[in-house]
Design a protein around this nucleic acid. Structure first.
Length: 415
DNA sequence: TCTGGGGTCCTAGGACCC
DNA sequence: TCTGGGGTCCTAGGACCC
């Protein structure tokens, strides 16, 4: 059996940890740039605030109903997430961290009653970390997701441990709420008369499912039948692509400013590439305007391939600057820029060209830079291409809480 | 004024091979 | 009159997730 443990309103719950006065009050957390809502407490949901809703539209509403608003504080959230995950490891030797606020636990060797086990997990996380979680337990990942979905509604631990219980549960899940069914597929499902997860499980034409919803769709159906198709894995696999991008706090038109932001993103992405001991053979960059602007949407992407894979920030920046020259256009109101590193390979086994020699000096320099930046903080040592003043494209964060758990300067102060 | 960021997987179709 | 058959590899784009 597999448990899915998922933190309730995770980002909001993290904020509440250090603001106990916000208990039972509506709280929301905004995306980067204070753009839109990405986490809501139950109270905020009840007020009708929507996930993904733009903040500027609900600003006065929040003031009126005393909704507490936070900018996102990811260093806090990832730190709390790490604590939750390591606590979960006490309950199973196989914990798959599925996202910042969710994990699958293998409970196949669990001797106790599963419901009791689920309650124990809830209590422990609440007591040791202070974050409320929901627990759903079932035979496959997809069914554990269903169990968790129902657990959230009742605040009980839900265990789906026999056919009848599973069927009853699946009838309660509208097809659009099923894990793996998104905006497009729910339309197709409904056209086939599939309105609930139960209908999907019992749809009897597998070939048709495969052709309409691809291999993944068929796997999902089998998972609902109790046949495991998505296995649990502990190891966090290396990333196959690494992205860094950000919307600007304001519109940017200057090529020099765009170059600085691209250099900045390349620095971040390359550092994360080196962290997982990888190299990349492709760099792509993009510049685009706002989706919502008055002028027509404009977006340009370009990519550069390297015959020998690299992880050298300075080399990548050099290439990135050329790429900006290629796609930049004057009089465009740029609102977002970003880079991606692709075709990622391990740095201990890759193909050199016949006449290529690794640049060991650069390697030493990158190592040193990473060491210093890990110790002293990001961008302590950086390429001057990133510039010294990024106020023009810096993001907006008007409601950011202190980094209580990751910065000495932000430590919680007691009288 | 103002709408996020970072990922994975799958498939069709093009390019190529003999 | 009339022009084969069987493959592999790669990529862009679309779907999904949080």
């Amino acid at each position: 059996m597999i448990a899915l443990v998922d933190c309730n309103s995770f980002f909001c719950s993290c904020e509440r940890l250090f603001r106990p006065d916000l208990k039972n009050k509506p709280v929301v957390v905004l995306s980067n740039n204070d753009g839109c809502i990405i986490s809501r407490t139950q109270e905020a949901k009840q007020l009708g605030l929507k996930m993904g809703g733009p903040y500027f539209e609900i600003k006065s509403f929040c003031r009126k109903y005393d909704v507490h608003v936070f900018s996102s504080n990811f260093s806090l959230y990832t730190n709390i997430s790490d604590r939750v995950m390591s606590t979960l490891e006490k309950f199973s030797s196989l914990v798959e961290i599925y996202s910042v606020d969710e994990a699958f636990l293998d409970l196949s060797t669990c001797q106790n009653d599963l419901k009791v086990m689920g309650k124990k997990i809830k209590q422990t996380i609440d007591q040791e970390i202070g974050i409320p979680v929901g627990v759903g337990i079932a035979k496959t990942k997809a069914l554990a997701k269903v169990a968790n979905y129902l657990a959230k509604k009742s605040d009980e631990v839900v265990v789906l441990d026999n056919e009848e219980v599973v069927n009853d549960a699946l009838k309660l899940v509208p097809i659009e709420d099923l894990w793996g069914v998104g905006r497009q597929n729910q339309i197709k499902m409904k056209a086939l008369g599939i309105m609930t997860a139960y209908d999907f499980k019992n749809y009897d034409n597998e070939k048709h499912i495969q052709s309409v919803f691809t291999k993944t769709g068929l796997q999902l159906k089998k998972e609902l039948e109790g046949i495991s198709c998505f296995s649990l894995s502990k190891a966090t696999p290396k990333k196959k692509s690494i992205l860094s991008s950000r919307s600007f706090g304001q519109v940017v038109t200057s090529k020099e400013e765009l170059k600085k932001s691209i250099a900045y993103h390349i620095s971040l992405a390359a550092q994360s590439l080196r962290k997982q001991n990888s190299l990349c053979s492709q760099l792509y960059i993009f510049l685009r305007t706002s989706y919502y602007g008055k002028t027509e949407f404009h977006s340009k992407t370009t990519q550069i391939n390297f015959s020998v894979p690299v992880d050298d920030t300075l080399f990548l920046i050099e290439q990135g600057m050329k790429a900006v020259d290629k796609i930049y256009q004057q009089n465009i109101l740029y609102k977002k820029a970003g880079v991606g590193l692709e075709k990622i390979v391990d740095n201990d086994s890759y193909q050199l060209g016949l006449f290529d020699r690794p640049n060991n000096e650069r390697k030493t320099l990158m190592n040193l830079m990473d060491q210093i930046n890990n110790r002293e903080g990001k961008f302590t040592l950086k390429s001057m291409a990133c510039g010294v003043d990024n106020s023009l494209w810096k993001m907006k964060q008007d409601f950011k809480s202190p980094r209580y758990t990751t910065s000495w300067n932000d430590l919680y102060k007691l009288k």
